[in-house]
Design a protein around this nucleic acid. Structure first.
Lengths: 223, 223
DNA sequence: TACAATATTAAACGATATCCAATTATATGT
DNA sequence: ACATATAATTGGATATCGTTTAATATTGTA
C-alpha cells in the first residue's frame, strides 16, 4: 500500500488516516449515495471526530476529488504513452474516449456519477476547480498539440479552447449515457462524437472561416 | 405588469406573492450574493413566514429558476422568429449565441453562475430537468431540424444529441467566460465555438467518417 | 524534561428544510 | 347574507447537516 514511507511517524499516521477516510468515504458514497452520506457517519466509521475529518478534507466533495486523482493517475500515464504511437488526431481521440469509458466508467459507473456531479457543482468555484479539473485536460492538451503540429488540427484556435471543447463533448456523452443509456449507448455515441469533433456538424463547404484551404471536395458523403 | 388576470382573487394573490418573492429574492442575491442571503431574510422582507416561502419555493435555488423562466420566455419568442429569416445554420447558431449571451448576462453575472450550476447539476435529474430545461432546447432543436432539412447539417446524428451538444457548448463558453473573462472573451469565444461546431477541429479531408454506413441510403438527396 | 508545533476534539453555530396545530382568508352553495 | 367547506398562512418547534471555533491532547525536538 504505502509505497513511499514518510519520514516520521506523524506523517505516516496522517497519510494512513487520509487513505482510510477516502476508502470508507467512497464506500459509503457508493453504497448510499453522496448526499445521504454524512460527514459524521464517515468520521464515526474511521473513528475520528468530525472536526478532524474536516481537518483532512475541508469540504465533503474533496474526498471524491482525492479518490479521483489517485485513480486517474495511472490511466493518464498509460494513455499518454499510447497516444504517441497512433497516426492521427482522430484515432487518438477515439482511443482516449473508448479507453476512458471502458476503464473509468464501465467499471465504476456510480463513482463517476458522483464525481461528475462534484465537478459540475464546482464549475463556478474557481479555487476548487483549479485543483480539480477533469483529469483529462493533460491528455487532451497533448492530443491537440500533437495534432496542430502534425497539421491535422486547425491552428486558428487556442489549445485551451479546443481542449475545453473536447472535455465538454466527452462529458456530455457521459452524462447523456448515464441519464439514458438506451437513448445514448456509450460506444456508438462516443464514436459519433469523435466524428463531430473532427468534422463538425455542418455539411456545407468551408466558406469564409478557415484560412487554410477549403477542402470540402470529399463532401458528398455524409454518412 | 400582470397581463393575464387570474380568475379569482386567491390565484391573483398567490401570483402576486410569488412575483414579490422572486423580485426581492433576486434583489438580495444580487446585493449580497446567493449564499449569504437566507430564506428567512427573504421571507421577512416579503413579509410572509418562512413556511409560506417554502410553500412557494421548495428549495432556494428555485427562486432563480423562476426568474430565469420568466426571462427566457420573451427571448425565445424573439429568437424563434429571427432564426427563420437567417440563411443557414451557422448564422442561426451564431445569432442565438450572441443574443443569448447579451440578453442573459446584461445583469449581475453571479446570479447566472448559480443558476447555470443549478441547471448543470440537475442535467441528469429527469424530473427536475423537465421543469427546468435550459430554455434553449426548443431553439436549438428548431435550428438543427431546419439545418438537417435544408441540408447543411449532417443527418447521421440524432437531433437530440446535436441539441445537447449545442446546449452544453453554449453553457461552457458562458462558464468559462465567467470564470476567466480575459482568457475566454465572450464574443470571440462564442464565434469560435460556432465554427468548431459547424466545421470541426480537423483539417484533413473528410475520410471514412463512421462505420455505420447503413445510414446513408437517403443520403444523396438533399444538397 | 520542557516547550513549541501540530493534531484532535467536543461543542457550538448557522443555515436549509420539514412539520404541525392553530388561525385566517377565500370560495361556494343555500 | 350567511354557513360551511376548502385552501393558504403562520409561528414555532425540530431535525439535520456542513462547517467553525476554541480548548485540549499529542508529538517532535532541543
Amino acid at each position: 500500500m504505502g509505497s513511499v514511507p514518510s519520514e516520521n511517524r506523524r506523517e505516516r499516521k496522517k497519510l494512513d488516516t487520509r487513505q482510510k477516510i477516502v476508502k470508507i468515504g467512497m464506500y459509503f458514497f457508493r453504497k448510499q449515495g453522496f448526499d445521504s452520506t454524512t460527514m459524521e457517519q464517515i468520521a464515526n466509521e474511521v473513528d475520528i471526530s468530525k472536526a478532524t475529518l474536516y481537518n483532512y478534507f475541508p469540504v465533503k466533495e474533496s474526498i471524491i476529488g482525492d479518490y479521483w486523482q489517485g485513480n486517474i493517475k495511472e490511466f493518464k500515464f498509460q494513455i499518454l504513452e499510447m497516444i504517441q504511437l497512433l497516426p492521427d488526431t482522430r484515432s487518438r481521440v477515439q482511443r482516449t474516449f473508448t479507453k476512458a469509458a471502458a476503464e473509468l466508467f464501465k467499471s465504476k459507473e456510480d463513482i463517476y456519477k458522483i464525481y461528475l456531479s462534484y465537478w459540475l457543482r464546482n464549475l463556478n468555484n474557481q479555487s476548487v476547480n483549479e485543483r480539480l479539473r477533469s483529469g483529462f485536460e493533460d491528455i487532451f492538451t497533448m492530443i491537440i498539440k500533437l495534432g496542430q503540429h502534425a497539421g491535422d488540427v486547425r491552428k486558428d484556435m487556442s489549445v485551451e479552447l479546443l481542449v475545453k471543447y473536447l472535455e465538454v463533448l466527452f462529458l456530455t456523452v457521459c452524462i447523456n449515457w448515464l441519464s439514458d443509456p438506451k437513448l445514448f449507448p456509450l460506444e456508438a455515441t462516443l464514436a459519433q462524437t469523435v466524428s463531430l469533433f473532427i468534422e463538425g456538424a455542418g455539411l456545407g463547404s468551408r466558406k469564409s472561416k478557415t484560412k487554410n484551404e477549403g477542402e470540402e471536395s470529399a463532401q458528398g458523403k455524409l454518412l
